[in-house]
Simulated assay, not measured.
Amino acid sequence: MTPGAQHPNEPAAQPLRSDAERNRERIIAAARTVFARDGLSASMASVSREAGVGIATMFRRFPTKAELVDAVFADRMGAYADAVATALDDPDPWNGFVGYIETACAMQAVDSGFADVLTMVFPTAKTLEERRNQAYEGMVQLIGRAKATGRLREDFDASDLVLLHMANAGVVNATGDAAPDAWRRVVALLIQSLEAPARGVLPDPAGHEALYKAMLRAGQAGSTAPAPGKSG
């Protein structure tokens, strides 16, 4: 390209950046809609169609699905962390613990994508994972306090929270709009089973490392998406 041909392109740089930002916001808004409806199994192509942008534009803004998940759900993971903080502030740790479970499961129930997010790990989604870790640290404190009151069964393990969210996500995704309140009964059953005195003995917990591997594998499966073969 000759030097003289570069000048006409320079003034167009700023509008291009504005267009790129508008496309980014359209993609995020579309992803919120698609993921909330279809969960994280929804394809990047379905998001690009919802946003009205080409698949190549989608991958320019978000080269990986994990980056899109981070942009879409970081704020909701922040709200999830806030729910833990609210639970910690409750003067009755058992009430705080129950309130947290009900709030977190309700968040899953209204958004299939977030139902999945709580059962998956995305190591490259830095903001989302930082907020998840913040919430987890708070829950470990809350579990200890609830046990100290004698209301939470002693053999409950913090890793059981992952199983609880997996169970609720399964109910939410299976029942959908056919039985939209079914999750409430499942959560009530789970809460009642957690209250002391314990009735029976639980098997050994799966453990943090094993469940992390399961969540990581689920996140990797949910993030798999082929790069576009040609620009669009």
Rank of each mutant, 00 (worst) to 15 (best):
L163Y: 08
P11N: 04
V187F: 01
L216W: 05
Q141Y: 11
T127Y: 02
E130D: 14
A51Q: 08
S48G: 03
V162G: 04
T103G: 01
K147Q: 14
N9D: 14
A146G: 02
R24M: 10
G222E: 02
M1C: 06
P93R: 01
A158M: 13
F62R: 10
R151N: 12
A87S: 04
G232A: 04
M139W: 14
Q6R: 09
A83I: 08
M58E: 05
D181W: 04
D160Y: 01
P11E: 06
A221M: 13
A13I: 15
A174G: 08
R145I: 12
A104Q: 04
T86H: 11
M166F: 13
A30K: 09
V47R: 07
D116T: 00
G229P: 08
E102P: 05
P15T: 08
A169S: 12
A42R: 08
Q108W: 03
L190S: 10
V84D: 03
A85F: 04
Q108R: 00
L68Q: 02
D111N: 05
P203V: 00
P197I: 01
E154Q: 14
R153Q: 13
V110M: 03
D19K: 11
M77F: 11
L194I: 08
Q192V: 08
M215I: 09
V69C: 03
A29H: 14
F62M: 11
L118S: 05
R22A: 13
P15M: 07
A104N: 02
V53T: 05
G144C: 07
Q14E: 15
A87F: 02
L128D: 06
V117E: 01
P3W: 06
T57M: 09
R131K: 15
R199K: 12
A125P: 05
R132Q: 15
I55M: 15
P93Y: 01
D181T: 11
P93V: 02
R17G: 10
D116E: 06
E137P: 06
E195I: 01
A179K: 11
A81R: 13
A148S: 15
V53M: 03
T127R: 14
P91F: 02
M107F: 07
S159N: 05
G39H: 05
S193F: 01
L202C: 01
T119Q: 09
G232Y: 06
G144H: 08
D75V: 14
K230Q: 14
C105Q: 10
A74W: 04
V140A: 05
T86N: 12
A12F: 13
Q141R: 15
N168H: 10
P91D: 04
A20S: 13
P226M: 02
L88Y: 07
A71T: 01
A196I: 07
I191D: 00
A87E: 06
P93F: 03
F114D: 04
S159P: 07
G96S: 03
Q6E: 13
A31Y: 08
V117W: 00
E67F: 06
L216S: 02
V171S: 00
D38F: 04
L142T: 01
E102C: 03
A214G: 07
A51K: 03
R32G: 10
I55W: 14
L211A: 02
I55N: 12
N133V: 15
A71K: 04
A206K: 13
